[in-house]
């Protein structure tokens, strides 16, 4: 019963946040909507005993990624109106129809199948088997998944190096000045 109440509240929060992300005119509001969704999903992780995942979600997503987003929004400028001219005819209406159809398919699947496509093992299985404590996650992480873990380290190093290269790369001054005047 508790799980149902939390699911409805947090699920509603996550959906409201998602709608805010795509509807808000101001990118800062979009970022705030995303923040709400991230926190709601973190609570849903806790409900599924994924404790460490929830903690990492709050620290990495809400802490680091969203801060980076807000930083760039402030840098790029929030006062600019979004260009609403349509380069592809009827693009917005078609996109809206497509998106609503996709959501409608999900809803109709649920209404007819009543979640039947998912095995009901969760009720029978031992809940302690999926209790995501740090210790429980670390053991497979550094045995079965160690290759993926190393690949991840390589990816992060490459991303960091690439970002530094992107940030420090400058063209000669005369060149950029000519481009700004439209030549």
């Amino acid at each position: 019963m508790v799980e149902l109440v939390v699911f409805v509240l947090m699920g509603g929060g996550a959906l409201a946040g998602g709608v805010t992300v795509i509807k808000a005119r101001n990118p800062v509001y979009s970022a705030m909507g995303l923040l709400g969704t991230l926190f709601a999903i973190a609570v849903l992780y806790v409900m599924q005993l994924a404790h460490f995942v929830a903690a990492v979600q709050v620290i990495v997503y809400a802490g680091a990624v969203l801060t980076l987003f807000l930083f760039v929004i402030m840098m790029v400028g929030v006062d600019k109106e979004e260009d609403v001219r349509e380069t592809i005819p009827h693009q917005r209406r078609l996109a809206l129809a497509l998106g609503l159809i996709a959501i409608g398919i999900v809803v109709s699947l649920v209404a007819r199948g009543r979640f039947a496509w998912v095995p009901v093992a969760s009720a029978a299985a031992d809940p302690q088997a999926t209790n995501g404590t740090v210790q429980a996650l670390a053991e497979p992480m550094f045995t079965d998944w160690v290759l993926a873990f190393e690949a991840t380290a390589l990816l992060l190093t490459i991303a960091a190096a690439g970002t530094i290269a992107l940030a420090s790369f400058r063209r000669p001054v005369a060149d950029t000045a000519a481009e700004r005047t439209g030549v």
């Binding site: 992300v21 996109a95 998106g99 959501i103 999900v106």
Partner: peptide, 14 residues
């Protein structure tokens, strides 16, 4: 549903 919302956002925002 959240995934569909995200995809919808990609399609309609500039």
């Amino acid at each position: 549903v959240l995934f569909a919302l995200g995809a919808l956002g990609i399609l309609i925002r500039r």
